[in-house]
Amino acid sequence: MSAHSENEHVIGYMPYITIWLTLIGLTILTVSISLFDFGTLTIIVAMIIAIIKSIFVINIFMHIKYDSKVFLGFIIAALVILLVCLVFTATDVFFR
């Protein structure tokens, strides 16, 4: 069991609303920058914004920041597998 009690991590409404507004802001940013041509960097810029959004959602909305580290480990393991899948697919797409 986690040593943390739930009472220690009661979060008020404000952080949730702030994060929600931040996510909306980042979504607007994603749509806005799609109007500019960054060439090959387009997908990288879009992915960076998406990663920032995911970090907010995972840490705050999913409570991972306050929970046992084993859950963080599970998420990282899944992401590593996803990353390897992307790299392996790239060995085909970029060398075809």
């Binding site: 597998i81 899948c85 392996f88 060995t91 060398f95």
Partner: peptide
């Protein structure tokens, strides 16, 4: 088992490196 999937695709026209 996660990293072997493309052995189903050796004749699909994917790259030699893959």
């Amino acid at each position: 088992g996660y990293f072997v999937w493309a052995h189903h695709m050796f004749t699909s026209g994917m790259s030699d490196i893959a």
